[in-house]
């Protein structure tokens, strides 16, 4: 009995020793955990969130600035959080100029997963809030083109982002380069819905998700991109400026309460639609999104289209007239 138990422990220790190795990091056992383990030197804390912290770091080998996202694994009963697995496994397959690069993955003491990313200066939310929204039309157009390029690439790889919002759009200042980020940290729908019903992130959620549709597709990302587009033009979240009880009511106030003609299938999706809210006549996008050229407003209206099957795709958006009259890098 004792011998058998000892044997079990011994073999498991051997398993743990090999566990400490990570081929992606080329780590060696015995090194101190944390930053040194990831071959980075921590400079400061760049951000904190429910998931953990983001550190600004120097890459020990290249001297380049990098961002290390340290995610706490708090619920041991569930093992590795699903969001981490999704984010890493997806980013391992996505290689695009407008998608943030994941450089290394490692873990510390079975308590943290450390993701090392290329560093970018700030996100679009910070850009809009702190530096004033991009007032010149060229910057808006350039940013939109890059965002749509990244989204079109993801969709061609059968990947939905499903959490597009300004804080997940990173910006390289000197190059005015856009990179999509955060491919997995958002919580699962049920939790997210409860937590964020009154919070900002719901401002970017597509109507078919808000209606609890169980079938949704790439169009949900295009709705979010449309919300980002409007926000870059008016300087604040579009559905924040509409006085409404909740997000879905705001959408219906803006675009009109859907009918079977405007959104085939809506009565099956929302049988209690007439109880849920009054019948709104559309206020119209042009009421809120001023100072956008006609072709831009046209593209925006095709993104913020109630019926998902009629909403424009990312690939088609890139060919829209809005993008044909401007040269950029």
């Amino acid at each position: 009995m004792w011998n058998e138990e000892s044997d079990w422990i011994g073999s498991f220790d051997a398993l743990l020793a090999r566990l400490a190795e990570c081929s992606m990091c080329s780590r060696r056992s015995g090194e101190r955990p944390g930053a040194a383990q990831m071959d980075v030197k921590i400079l400061d804390v760049a951000a904190e969130g429910g998931y953990g912290r983001v550190f600004r770091c120097l890459d020990v080998h290249t001297g380049a600035l990098v961002a290390m996202k340290q995610i706490t694994m708090v619920r041991l009963s569930q093992g590795i959080p699903a969001q981490i697995i999704r984010e890493v496994s997806l980013l391992r397959e996505l290689h695009h100029a407008n998608i943030v690069k994941l450089l290394r993955v490692g873990f510390t003491e079975n308590r943290y997963v450390n993701l090392v990313f290329e560093h970018l200066d700030y996100d679009l939310h910070q850009f809009i809030v702190n530096r004033g929204y991009p007032k010149d039309a060229t910057t808006v157009k350039s940013f939109m083109f890059q965002i749509l390029s990244a989204v079109a690439y993801c969709h061609s790889r059968k990947v939905l982002h499903r959490d597009l919002k300004p804080s997940n759009v990173l910006i390289n200042h000197s190059k005015r380069l856009i990179k999509l980020a955060d491919f997995g940290l958002a919580r699962e729908f049920a939790d997210d819905f409860l937590y964020t019903e009154k919070l900002g992130t719901s401002w970017y959620r597509a109507p078919e998700i808000l209606c609890h549709s169980r079938q949704y597709s790439t169009q949900v990302d295009l709705w979010s991109v449309g919300c980002i587009f409007a926000e870059m033009v008016i300087g604040q979240p579009l559905f924040q400026v509409i006085n409404c009880r909740d997000e879905l009511e705001g959408i219906f106030k803006l675009l009109g309460t859907p009918t079977e003609e405007t959104w085939p299938g809506i009565t099956k999706l929302m049988p209690n639609l007439h109880i849920y809210c009054s019948k709104f006549d559309p206020l119209g996008l042009e009421t809120f999104v001023t100072d956008l050229e006609p072709s831009g407003l046209n593209l925006l209206s095709m993104m913020l289209c109630l019926d998902p099957s009629k909403r424009i795709s990312a690939e088609a958006s890139l060919k829209h007239a809005y993008f044909t009259d401007v040269n950029w890098i």
């Binding site: 566990l19 990570c22 081929s23 992606m24 590795i80 890493v88 496994s89 391992r92 873990f107 079975n110």
Partner: peptide, 14 residues
């Protein structure tokens, strides 16, 4: 959880 980490690393998170 430890085995999950081992599998993820071995499959290179793909």
């Amino acid at each position: 959880q430890r085995m999950e980490l081992l599998v993820l690393s071995t499959l290179k998170w793909r």
